[in-house]
Design a protein around this nucleic acid. Sequence first.
RNA 1: GCUGAAGUGGUGGAAUUGGUAGACACGUUGGACUUAAAAUCCAAUGAACAUUGCGUUCGUGCGGGUUCAAGUCCCGCCUUCAGUACCA
Length: 1198
Amino acid sequence: MKYHFNEIEAKWQKYWAENQTFKAENNSEKPKYYVLDMFPYPSGAGLHVGHPLGYIASDIYARYKRHKGFNVLHPQGYDSFGLPAEQYAIQTGQHPAITTEENIKTYRRQLDQIGFSFDWSREVRTSDPNYYKWTQWIFIQLFNSWYNNDVDKAENISTLISVFEKGGNANVNAACDDNITIFTAEAWKNYSSEQQQEILLKYRLTYLAETEVNWCPALGTVLANDEIVNGVSERGGHPVIRKKMMQWSMRISAYAERLLQGLDTIDWPEPLKEIQRNWIGKSVGASVTFKVLSPTLSNGKGVVPGYMTGGNNSHLLLERAKEMRANPTEAEAALWQNLKGKKLDSKFRRQHIIGDYIVDFVCLDKKLIIEVDGKIHDSQIEEDANRTEILENDFYKVIRFKNEEVLGNIDEVLEKISKELAERESIKREQVLPSGKDLGWEIDVFTTRPDTIFGVSFMTLAPEHELVAKITTPEQKAEVEAYIEATAKRSERDRMADVKTISGAFTGAYAEHPFSKKPIPIWIGDYVLAGYGTGAVMSVPCGDQRDYDFAKYFEIPIPNIFDLSKIKGSSESSPPLEELEEAFTDKDNTIIANSGFLNGLNYKQAVKRAIYELEKLGQGKGKTNYRLRDAVFSRQRYWGEPFPVYYVNGMPQMIDTEHLPITLPEVEKYLPTETGEPPLGNATHWAWCTKTNKIVSNEMLKQVQHDKNGSVIPTEQSDEESHNGVYPLELNTMPGWAGSSQYFNRYMDPHNDTEIFSQEAINYWQQVDLYIGGSEHATGHLLYSRFWQKFMYDLGLVPHDEFAKKLINQGMILGTSALIYRLDVEFSVDYKISEASEIIAQSTSHLAYAKKATQDGRFGSNYVFSKNRKNEIEQKGYGNIDKVIIEKISKKLHEITPNSPVENIELINQFEKKIHIVGLIFSPIHVDVSLVNSSDELDIEAFKLHPMGKDYKEVEFLSEEDGTFKVGREIEKMSKRWLNVVNPEIICSDYGADSLRLYEMFLGPLEQYKPWNTAGITGVYSFLKKLWKLYFDDNGFKVTETEPSKEALKTLHKTIKKVEEDIENFSFNTSVSTFMIAVNELTAQKCTSREILEPLLILISPYAPHIAEELWNQLGHKESISTAAFPKFDESHLVESTKNYPISFNGKMRFTMELPLDLSKDDIEAAVMAHEKTKEQLQGREPKKVIIVPGKIVNIVG
RNA sequence: GCUGAAGUGGUGGAAUUGGUAGACACGUUGGACUUAAAAUCCAAUGAACAUUGCGUUCGUGCGGGUUCAAGUCCCGCCUUCAGUACCA
């Protein structure tokens, strides 16, 4: 009897379906185990051999766990909402539900053919109203919740309302919008219902807000961040622009920290966790508030006050100041004796430049200026009231003394100064320095390096920052506006592609350094992103490379605040960084310098101190920032879950959960409406009647209009009366990830129509024990699902806040593309006008073209080369191509190039045409892999009949010497585009599902990317035939009840041990090898014992269930093999009495020796040394050392 | 740039706590069976040298190191793939 896999597989697939062999019950005495696959999107193309890889692995594990005595839940379903079905509907008008249904049928047929042990009675489909009812239900729960940071969990919105009623929102610590205004309990009570709703929206976990979204005009919808790859849409690669729209969002950012922490508690692949960590993007640092100084001084010159910044003549002033310091007046000298060295507890400087002036003495800290009127120095005489005014404008206080006062009674003068200093001390800093305060402008920045705060030499705002327009000085206005316009024009993609070009503009404004009080110029630059942090940075050029580059480019000072002498161990002390090529960004080896109270501290100490000082000033605090943004939840699509939302006076209202599901309405067209509304705007029945709680005709709506984004435009009449209780429903639908974020829980109780799942079911199954799927969902489905699970945990619905204990990413199976090589010609044609026709040409307007023209191009010839022919020519050079071919190509080239490069000119024959062949080149052409046999030979006749072969009817095929036409191979992603898709159905009919399953596992480690090569399947196929032959030969069934041999028992138990270890480690490829070894050994041993062959089947059955089931049945069992217990490993069968020792010399194995295992070290050494080959190796030398590891190895050194 | 993973025959890939590198397959070559092909079976197959056999030398991306012994551990590079990208 032969191995007829087709009959066997059909028979058992039918049996399993009819007997519901794999149906899981929600209670059992056995321990539970939940194995889950990522459910597929049923696309029209069906499955290729790459798709089932993960399903086969999980199926093996599920079957193995059943043998091990577990009650296994192994469900499957369909993620059946989505874009392709909708695109197809737009093109053909066919309802997406029909397309989806058809695709599901194909999928089911293909899946069934592979023999999975799914419990299909639990199937879910995201597009099924009975399923999406619960997706809508969760949405409502999210809407009715807010995130309380104090207890770090979501709570019902009613608790927030009662807090508002009792004490307003001042003490609420919630995850909420940024633009919250503080109100009192009294104010809350006085707000209108709409105002209250609007405020609550800012706290809800799903909220409606005007957000800047990624709008994809080609797809007519918004996309989430994870749906964009390199600035274009993941699907279709269409451009994406930023646009403001009213959209539903999910406040996933509230869970950022828990999503991050949770990663440490789950057994997921490290690379995937790393992707999620990066996506969440936690950074710890501080927020710092910089006050904006008054734009300009009114000195008419636009000169900005500033210490050491100076005006245009600052270098002259500097010279002058030096000179004056060297030649003080008698009075100045006397006063300086009493001011210097902090004699009055304040530091004074003399002859100091403030703005365009030199002042006699100044205490910068207190902004107190002392002027001594002299007679000797001319320059001192010109001072006037104007100067005082200007200085006072900049909040300096100027006090004056006469020379005589100083010289006459210096004590009195000093006392006056002391009094003045004390007064300025007692005045609050803000009053002394009302700088930007009069206008209240402040710039908040986020920094991870508060330790470098003294290195700030400028600030940079994103061009989109709201303060830019306000602070820009009239002088800088034109430049700034031009810059903003230029940046806005650049698409997101350009901006990303071009990170090297430094650009920016100076606003003319200054901010005040929180500690040094020095003015800091404010710039704008597109290296600062509006979307991250606050859209503004404090720029520390010596400590950040981008700041450094920016400063270098615009020649902004780069003060150094690092003690490089201590860092680099050099004797120089703090060399100026301007001379260095890059910023010093190493924070682990930092010693801060030139930074006041931070001097001498390392990174950690300095950060702590800086935050402490900032807090003392009230100008900053420690802060943690996350990159994770809230997820946009609205899509302008038809084929998705409708929102259970209607609008009253523009405010969203939830439909009562008892009225769910809100089913998708029928529409005539699946495109956006003419007015730009989402497709649901086409529905005629899409309004909500609050009286009947039903969806009703739009005709019952009164005067309600939507704007382009689907939001309701409120009208004056839109109160309850005029609506008659009928309101418009939300026109957007939910995104693809809505349905996939809770399906794993629904499988536990899929038919429950009163609850999302019963508490019994969730408490029995708990969570997914093993989840297998692709890593491409790292920042989408896998993050959103974790978010929803945590939310449901907060609600007390689920016992774990992580939905999947263990996750494995299966690698992709790549396709092996087949290539043929067409000879292409690169050519150049010169057109020259002949003299005779020049006259004619002159009379036309085409003279300029006609005189001379060149046309370059590339031309695909009719010659196709096989792989080796091509290689040969590429090695020898293109000159070796047959001359006849070149001639023919040349002729063809003459035919296809026009006689005139200029159209519509009637001088066709007047042109002289000269054709140059510039180059020859092979261009690879993909051919369908199904036309290529296992020896890489292309079936040329079949190729010509193939749809794509039509273009190659005339083609000449230049084959190998032996007459075969070999194709080249290239490993690429398996896709229709590369014609390298292999259909599992064909594999199943040619080799059987068991072969397919074994081969997919045998290809390599599950997580790894590996190429598919159909030819290789013969290996596992002949293994199955060999396996069959252990049970059957030409005379029929040959299993006997004879006692098994020792060798056979050893083979069996060795196999049990290895297979069990391999499955537990998900090393499926090696266990297939183990089976092969076992079958090869048992065949050689001529084993026929039932005692061996029966347990062997159970070992193999998770991998090749059909053949195992058939042979199990032949052995006389009536129950399915899936219920059999996994064989028990018995060590005693593996005990050996001897060991074949490898004998090494200096670590290199030279020969082996069979020795008893119970030999002592000395006996082993004696035996080895006595061996003839040992003497030969040593050639008379004495061994220096003999290493003996009993049971392992002998190594002789010498 | 940053982060992560990985480099082993012609190919996919094995190799336990450092202990016989290349298991198991594919492919290739030779042979048996056959009119022939397919299928099946047998043998060889890391490279080089030697071939009368016994063999010898070199070999896990590169260069060092630790060790009796390194694909495996340590240091420094190179390459490939993936993720991410002005994240302050």
